[in-house]
Design a protein around this nucleic acid. Structure first.
Lengths: 151, 151
DNA sequence: TATATTTATACAAAAAATTGAATATTCAAA
DNA sequence: TTTGAATATTCAATTTTTTGTATAAATATA
């Protein structure tokens, strides 16, 4: 048997190395690798992996999306954030070592009007609120991300 | 309802901020936070989170193990790496947006003699080999990390 | 060592995630 | 538009994960 993770890793690998124009094509590719799966599952995998159609001369092919990894990234985030704390001026998010940049990037991409900006070191993020009155809301927002179930 | 991730995040937080000497104590702590759970579950959580007993003057208390947290990160890495490519001089690793720093940090920590160093931008890592002859091996090393199964 | 306390695990129940078949929906080409 | 191909989704079955209870095993204490 193969695991879902294994299948999805193979998919990423294939999409990187081959031009795949539709899902049935990938069904065959995977089959040759000993992975039997239906088109319905691939449709779901694509969503999870953040696979997108990139238009090319020969037609639009499927590729991995750098910006959005679907909801995978959300799962990473909740592992990486250790705590969220604040004082009257700002919010400090503590993360696993070396993960602050990635989490800060995610927070930036939320484009929340409550947040002026972030600065990330190795395991600490400083979140600057647009207004100090927002602090409680921002803490709540980040806590929500941390504890959110996948959608 | 609460999610398992949420519970485990709370556990990490509590272990950081309070001296917990046994699992029943933590059952009560969590209960006060509205999280009802049994000792058996905490025993399993501790294993998953890599919680260890640290002996202190007052007795041995439970703390997060830095080493084990590192093991958890390995599982994140394969999600973040999109591709590994090279020419005659160096290796380029492409990652999800905003994740290059974290992945580079991990590669650095491998302390591989094959690698001279890394430079990371937002979604791209430049890996400089100690010797150009190592390039194939380094690519293979990184590919291996990418395809590692979850344990 | 004997006893009490604490932790880990076997087992079963419950909950959640995964998947395929069938089908609805969307998209592209004529 | 209309038609055919491609993709997404509903539903149900299946598998995996999570959890508590009961208890075994381990550890600490007297």
């Amino acid at each position: 048997m193969y695991s879902k993770t294994h299948r999805q890793n193979k998919i990423k690998e294939i999409l990187r190395d081959h031009a795949i124009y539709n899902q049935e094509e990938l069904v065959k590719f995977l089959s040759e690798e000993g992975i039997e799966v239906t088109q319905a599952t691939l449709s779901r995998d694509f969503q999870e992996l953040g696979v997108v159609r990139t238009s090319a001369a020969e037609g639009s092919r499927y590729t991995l999306n750098v910006e959005e990894a679907g909801n995978q990234i959300r799962k990473l985030i909740s592992f990486e954030i250790l705590s969220v704390e604040s004082n009257e001026m700002l919010i400090i998010v503590r993360t696993l070592a070396g993960r602050a940049q990635g989490v800060a990037h995610y927070i930036d991409k939320l484009n929340s009007k409550l947040i002026l900006g972030t600065i990330a070191g190795d395991d600490t993020i400083l979140v600057v609120p647009a207004n100090v009155k927002n602090i409680a809301d921002i803490v709540q927002l980040i806590n929500k991300i941390m504890n959110e179930e996948k959608t």
